[in-house]
Design a protein around this nucleic acid. Sequence first.
DNA 1: ACCGGACCTAAGCGCTTGCTCAGTGCCGCG
DNA 2: CGCGGCACTGAGCAAGCGCTTAGGTCCGGT
Lengths: 216, 216
Amino acid sequence: MGAAAQQAAEENEEWAGVTPDAARRLVSAAVEAFAERGYHATTTRDIAGRAGMSPAALYIHYKTKEELLYRISGIGHEKALRIMGAAAEAPGSAPERLRDAVRTFARWHAEHHTTARVIQYELQALSPEHYAEIAGLRRQTDRLLRQIIQDGADSGAFHVDDVPGTTLAVLSLCVDVARWFSADGSRTPDEVGALYADLVLRMVGAPPLPATGKSG
Amino acid sequence: MGAAAQQAAEENEEWAGVTPDAARRLVSAAVEAFAERGYHATTTRDIAGRAGMSPAALYIHYKTKEELLYRISGIGHEKALRIMGAAAEAPGSAPERLRDAVRTFARWHAEHHTTARVIQYELQALSPEHYAEIAGLRRQTDRLLRQIIQDGADSGAFHVDDVPGTTLAVLSLCVDVARWFSADGSRTPDEVGALYADLVLRMVGAPPLPATGKSG
DNA sequence: ACCGGACCTAAGCGCTTGCTCAGTGCCGCG
DNA sequence: CGCGGCACTGAGCAAGCGCTTAGGTCCGGT
């Protein structure tokens, strides 16, 4: 399987939970369009066109354009939360858990920068009710990361003066990968994850960990 | 002078170079609206209304809505570049210059988070020609910061494996302040600047600098 | 007193937007 | 073969968009 086919397969897999096929094609098309131009600059005609349908077909599967964004945001944020949760609840020392959390979280934002861009930068376009729901998922992610950093501070493995502030900075750093990362740039998602894990361990005043060779 | 009046005075000062008065009021209104809803979700009627004029008045001072964004982007990016330049060209060791660069750059993004949000997150709405021009300013800012980090690495004051990657991360960290910072949050711009300067010095493997007390 | 021009408004043009709806083609089932 | 249901389309509606135009007001200069 070539690189392009591999990419396409991953794209499909990302929305595997969305059925039927037409609904999945619409989500996929919407993510592409929203990431490229932004939610408000994207027309329902554009989304339907990318999915190979007439404009009206969109409304058989989604009540409004906003509902499409809501579905994308929900699925994306749940995935991000699971990634952070897996690292936070894994066995291991605080430095190990922080390294894995940052490595996988940053790498996901690079690998899925299209989706990540939409869910991180188009939130304001959600309805107030939908926004509140998504904000809850974000708070959970934040809490998981803060607990890792707090654990390390408590055990003396980290030296941080401001745990909430440092948590915010680490999260901000990872999230912003979605803004600048480009698939045709010089860095692979794996490299971004490794670099960011290293930088964050320094931020919390932890001594470098021995390399494990595994990538997450 | 009360806090609200102080805020208003600073807002006015930010666009002091824009004349006549009506043109300045329009820029100020546009920044507010773009930051709140995004460029594409903002109507020219909204901008004119906030500036206390009829929709048509906008077109006496600006040819298009995009030109307003272009002016805002230009002024904002030039200011950001001057802040980075001042720190980069100041006398002092690489750690001192990096600390001051990050402190002032991050603080500006917090203090002027409304403007910063527009110039950092609405770039894609610029015409290709205008975008290219603004991208040049951004490259200059990047180069200034990278040189500080390179200087520190060369002199042995910093320990960085990947200078371009670390530069990108530091810039990303500071820029993203504009996304999450809120004026009614618990952190002042000064505090954000101080925290970020400290975190970044750790990222480059520099020993902590003695506190200077000065904030700029 | 009068004029030219800078500045502004009321009205509205042509177009695009999100979304709707009557109707079409196609499917499995009897 | 006929039928009911479903995914889908072509056409289009009401509203809102960026922007224009014709005309009014005010003000400094002569």
